[in-house]
Design a protein around this nucleic acid. Sequence first.
RNA 1: GCCGGUGUAGCUCAGUUGGUUAGAGCACGCGGCUCAUAUCCGCGGAGUCCGGGGUUCAAGUCCCUGCACCGGCACCA
Length: 665
Amino acid sequence: MSRFYLTTAIDYVNSRPHLGTAYEKITADVIARYRRLRGDETHFLMGNDEHSQNVYRRAVELGLDPLAYCDRMEQEFREVWRKLDISFDDFIRTTEPRHRAGVTALAERIAKAGDLYEGHYEGWYCVSCEAFKQEKDLVDGNCPVHLRPPEWIREKNHFFRLSKYRQPLIDHFAAHPEFLVPDVRRNEILRLLESGLEDISVSRAGQSWGIPLPSDPSSVVYVWFDALINYASAVGLGTDAGQFARWWPADLHVIGKDITRFHAAVWPAMLMSAGVALPRQIFGHGFVSLKGQKMSKSLGTILDPVDAADRFGADPLRLYLVKEIAYGADGDFSWERFEERYNVDLANNLGNLVNRVAAMTDRYRGGRLRASGATAGRLAATAEAAVADYRRSMDALALHEGAAAAYRIVDAANEFIAETEPWTLARDPAQAGRLTQTLYDVTEAVRLAATLLLPIMPSSSAQMLRRVGEPVPEGLELHDAARWRPAGERVVAKADPLWPRLEPKAPPAAAPEEPAAKAAHSTRRAKPMSEEQKDQPAPPAALPVTPTATPAQAGGERISIDEFMKVELRVAKVLAAEKVPNSKKLVKLQVDVGTEQRTLVAGIADAYEAESLVGRTVAVVFNLKPAKLMGIESNGMVLAASPEGGKPALVTFDEPVPPPGSRVR
RNA sequence: GCCGGUGUAGCUCAGUUGGUUAGAGCACGCGGCUCAUAUCCGCGGAGUCCGGGGUUCAAGUCCCUGCACCGGCACCA
C-alpha cells in the first residue's frame, strides 16, 4: 500500500481563519480524502504557527500568557476546521516539545554542515512588521506601514548559507519538473534562483518567545525558519526516527502562492544542508477574493467560512470552492454566485436527480429494485469514462476538473431519464423489466457520482449513497467502488430534498442607486436580498461584508414594511392589447398608469384574449426595471395570481374601480 | 518605483504538450416532457479569443511590442 503525506501551511494565530485560509484547508482536505479513497495510507497534517512576535504582543495586549492565548486560538481553529469537515490526521503547534526537538535537530545538522554563521545586522526595525526597514523607506522617521517609529537595532544574527544552494536548487528543479506546481510558480522561483540568492538571517536576538538556537541559546530561531520545520517535526524528526522514516519525505505541501519562495527555495535548501530528503511536490494555490476584492481585515472584506457553513452546510461551500475555481489560479467568491451554483449544481441537478429517481422507484417499484443487468445504454460508458477522467484529474491535482468529471455523470443521468422516459415505460406492463433496469441504472449513476464526490462533499455524498441503498462501506476504495455494476438489488429511500432551492425572498425592488449598467437581466424571480445590496450606498471602508445581519435562510423569511414599500404598485387601465407574434403566451399592453402611458408585456395570453383586456383595470408594478421580451421592452408587470398548474388570473378591483395611477398597498 | 497578474459569448470563467466548424454555466429565445425541489431534456442567437508585429504548414495557445484594467510591495490564504 502506498503512503501519502500531505501538509498545509500552518497558520498564524493572530485572528480567526477566514475564507482564504479555509480554501487552502478545504482543497487539501479534498486531496487527502481522495488519496484515502484511492487506498493510500494517508497522513494529513495541519497546524498553527505560534512563535510570532505579533502573537506574543497580541497576547500581552489581552493580558494573557502567550501560550494560554495560543491554546485559546487552537480551540477556535479546531472548531472552524471541524465545521468545515477537515479531516486532518495530526495538528501541530510550533510551541509543542516535539516541534522544538525537530527544530533543534535540524538546526544542529545545518550547523554541523557549516551552513550557519554568525554576523551582525543593524538597522531600523519595525516591531509590528517584524522586519528591518531601509532608511529611505521611512516616512518622517516612522514605519510607512504602521506609522510608528522603528527601533534602531544592532544585533547578533545567525545566517544560513542559502546562497550555497543556488545551483543545487536549480539542478533539483531541472531534475524534478513536478517539484513545484503550477508552472507559473515554478517559473517565478526559477527566475529568482537565476538572479541569485542571498544568505538569510535565521535568528533573532533578545527575544524569549521562540525556540532557542542550539549554538547560541541567547537567540531564538527566526519564525520562518522555525515554521517550515513543522512538516518534519510533526512526523518525528528529532523525536521518533521510526515514524520519520515512515512518512518522510512529504508527498505534497499545499501552500498559498505568496509563500512559495520559502517553500521552494529556503526549505529545500535547509533540507539539503541537513542531508534530509526533499518533499516530492509543492503546490502553490491561488487566492480567493470576495466579490473581486482582496480579503482584507482592515477593509472588512473578510468572509467567515463558518458563516457559509452554518447557513448551508459545509458541503455546498466546499463544492463551490473546488468546482468553481481552477485549482492553482485565483478565484472569487460572491454570495450571488454561490447561490447560483447552489441552485444549479445542488438543488436542480444533483439533488433533483436523487429525488426524482427515488420518487419513481418508490412509486413504480415500492422502493425496491432488482436488476439483472440488461442494459444501460450510453450511461454506463459515459460514467466509466468520467471516472477515468476524474482519476486523471485528481491525480494531477486538477480538483476543479475532477469535480466537473463527477458532474458529467449527473448530467448524463438526467439525460438518460429524459431519453428512457420511465413514466412511459411504467404504463406498459410488458416493459416492467426495462423500467426496473432503467431506474437501477440511474441509481447506479448516482452511486458513482456520489462516490467521486465523497472527497469534496463527504457528508452529503455519504447521504446520497445511503439513499440509493449503497451506504459507504468501511474502507471504501475507488478502484472497486467506481466500477459500474450492471446488476444488483437495492432499496431506495425517498426523503426530503437534500438541497432545497434557495428562493428569493424580496421583490426586485428597483434599486435606484443602480444605474442599470448591468444590462437588463430581468429574471422572473426576484433576486435574493443579499448583503451587498445593503452595502452599496455605504462608504466602502466601513462595511463588513461578513453577513451576520440577515442570514438568508431557505424558507419564508419576512420582509419589513419598508422593503415592501419599495415596490410601487399602481392601478392601470389597459388602452390597447395585442398578442405578441410568434409567442405562446405574451401579450403586449399599452396602459395608462396615471402619470403616463406605458408599454408592458404580460404572460397571460393563454388565459385572456388580447381584445378582452382592452378597457380593463389592472394592477401593475410601476417601478420595475425594463426588460426585453421577444424584442419588446416591457416597462412594468401586470399582477396576476398564478395557481399551481393553472392559468393566470388577473387581479381586479371592487367597484367603484379606482382611477389609473392610484397606489396599491 | 519595484514585482506580478489579467484581457476569450450579455455575465462568470474553462481552454491540456500550438493542430479540424473556439467551449461550459448563468442569462435570453423557442420547443419538448411531467418522475422530480416551477425541476429536467433538446434546439437557437450572439465572440475581430484587447491591438499590432513575428515564429510556424498551423497560434486563443509560443516570442516581441503597444494599450487597458487590476493586484502586491500591511497582515494573510
